[in-house]
Design a protein around this nucleic acid. Sequence first.
RNA 1: GCCGAAGUGGUGGAACGGUAUACACGCAACGCUUAGGACGUUGUGCCUUCGGGUAUAGGGGUUCGACUCCCCUCUUCGGCACCA
Length: 828
Amino acid sequence: MSERDEQVGYDVHATEAKWLPVWDELDPFRADDASPKEKRYPLTMFPYPSGDLHMGHAEVMALHDVIARYWWLRGYEVMNPMGWDSFGLPAENAAIRNDAHPAEYTYANIETQYHSFKKYGIAFDWSRRLHTSDPEYYRWTQWLFLKFRERGLAYRKNSPVNWCPNDQTVLANEQVVDGKCERCGAEVTKRELTQWYFKITEYAQELLDDLDVLAPTWPDRVVTAQRNWIGRSEGAHLDFRIAGRDEPLTVFTTRPDTIFGTTFMVVAVDSAAAEELVTDGQRAAFEAYREEIRAASDIERLATDRPKTGVDLGITATNPVTGDEIPVWATDYVLADYGTGIVMGVPGGDQRDWEFATKFELPIIRTTEPPADWDGEAYNGEGAAINSPATGTASGLDINGMPVAEAKSATIAFLEQSGTGRGTVNFRLRDWLLSRQRYWGVPIPIIHCDTCGEVPVPYDQLPLELPELKGADLKPKGVSPLAAATDWVNVDCPSCGGPATRDSDTMDTFVDSSWYFLRYCSPNDDTQAFDSALVNAWMPCDIYVGGVEHAVLHLLYARFFTKVLADMGLLDFREPFAAQLNQGFVINRGKKMSKSLGNGVSLGDQLAEFGVDAVRLTLVFAGPPEDDIDWAEMSPGGSLRFLQRAWRLSGDVTSTAGTPFVAEGGDVALRKQTARTLTDAAELVESYRFNVMIARVMELVNATRKTIDSGAGPTDPAVREAAEVVAMLLSLVAPYTAEEMWERLGHQPGVARSSWPEVDPALLVEDTVTAVVQVQGKVRGRLEVSPDISEADLEAAALADEAVQRAIDGAEVRKVIVRAPKLVNIVL
RNA sequence: GCCGAAGUGGUGGAACGGUAUACACGCAACGCUUAGGACGUUGUGCCUUCGGGUAUAGGGGUUCGACUCCCCUCUUCGGCACCA
């Protein structure tokens, strides 16, 4: 016991040591599937087992726990599970460094984190614990992959992909941020590889549409990020004929109305179309240009201010509306994998095309009338169509004078009628690349046979377990370490029995986390991935608490999985998370904590100094959950002092313990404040304003203290009631202190499973309220009045007030606004 | 460039269109103390001639009344970005 603790008689560390074994015995947070009570499923993003828990974990868990514990108190059956996202690169890299197996590192860290979680006092149901790296779990990840494949939603294709040279593996688009690897920050390059994809694009429209449903209960920034990421744009496909080629070149444009201003075509330099179209005369120039572009990094290519480059392919295409022959160029400002990889060049309406046309001296025709004061180059705003067609040009289409929207639909109608194009919708979202050339992940359960092609591993042979590899065997070498495990890779084809090889890639770990929330509902079922009846009973999750960094990663993938599984008839809902709460970061001295800055704050040190409850309280009281917390500006010492003040109340109460929360008589003012605090706290927790909820509890503690010291005294039943409510509300953030108070108040352990008291409505009615009297909108007087005072009486009382009369100063009263019983505003 | 969120005391932050600055931290004075990262009391936006005046990034507007709603500007943060 430290010197400080001795003085106040409250030893936080002894209290923690005292209650942990008691709670283990009580196991108060085990969810009962069969309970008749209404169910609640709060979920928090499960951690990756890297080392011990840190301040970030501490914050998100503390916030999450307020909600979970609140629901228990309100009488719901709460399922609050926890597990580990335990496949992934850090363990593999550590294994290479230490000549070990990734599992050693992973499962050791899981145990460390497990014990830290328990000590941290989060109300988890540990009977549902899972690890995605367990064969019992990834067996079903493989099962899901095969089911997706049967539905055509998992497929292989050859395509240029993102390659992280540091991690030696490919990455999904979502894992490339500003041209860099989301994990390690290395500059991503491109490689042409045959890889597995999930067809998330098939769900693009529904993923977008359902954001409208989620918008009221999901954070704006997540909804917006997903909308941007999905990137729907409406436009048209236009077919440009090429002499001597059967198939036309099809472009995607959002501005079909600018077709009359199309003076050239541009094809992505790295596309198959460019390779095919280039004429012999231009081939040398084209290939030189292509090499030049390939040598440039993505970072260089992404710079929007670099000059336009390109090569004339030496052919022409026919404008489907005007019949004009226009040149076809190759360039790197057109992306091979967006739209059709071919763009119609409209320099008058697109700045990039303008720059290209200017550089290569191609004609420029405006097709939208810019405003009179327009002094820019390409104009893409609103305006009447012009030069469409230009005077004297023969064309079946004339949209001159039409505003943009009308011109677009008229053009699309013409294209469809003439069979040269059609209205269409394009998405920015690409299919999800799921193969990874690393070891510590789920093996892809496919066998490649020269005779039979791709053959799925039979369901009865799942799980397909990882071979035992360790240390140097795991060194990245551009192909998966599994490929070198010859005993494992070489198999007989399940279909023809001939020699075949296993797919040697493993799955992106985001696949594992796309369905773990389903597995929690029946974590030990060894006959199926999840029990649909149980999942449908518990889900969707009522709240999902976690970091906003997953806005377009995990949260998009999990939504996709849910929709597919619903289409498979396994779920009766199509969105997994009904509501979502993002927490901010814990930073230090204005900067993100990092080793290089040397400003890391150790959670262990903070817990040792201030105790679990004070740290949790500090994190929750700091401000709104989604705001960042600068730990340097927090005062966990102040939190500890508050907890001690609260704790002291429980020792001062001298009335006899009975049924909790039943006060007969006693100090009415305190009873009213207790009732008001309970009512407000419920509303505040439900709207995630936990910091304000704690402020209300602090006020109640202060009021109770006053009542003991200078009011009704420690024997008053209202004091006991208030102290009990303090203990109960405090259990949401400071479970040890709350439990200790509860015991000192004479109750059996288990304040966290006590029940929220019914509030007597009579106690919520105030005897008097303060009415404010304003003159010209400025406060000039205050009146203590009955809450049911009539408007006329309040007005009379206000006008009779001396200070008010002084402010009126004999002027004529033109109007009096009365909002009984709170306010009167006198207008002169 | 496009889209979104936000700017309140020395600090973290409160505030259904109706008392701006709740609750804390910090600071100051006093009390209790051998002592204090302890406890308690009081004070604490700014200006003031003590009547008041004035303040929610800046400027307009709506309203009897605006931190709150609308418009413009500035700043910060986030998303997307050569996406046709």
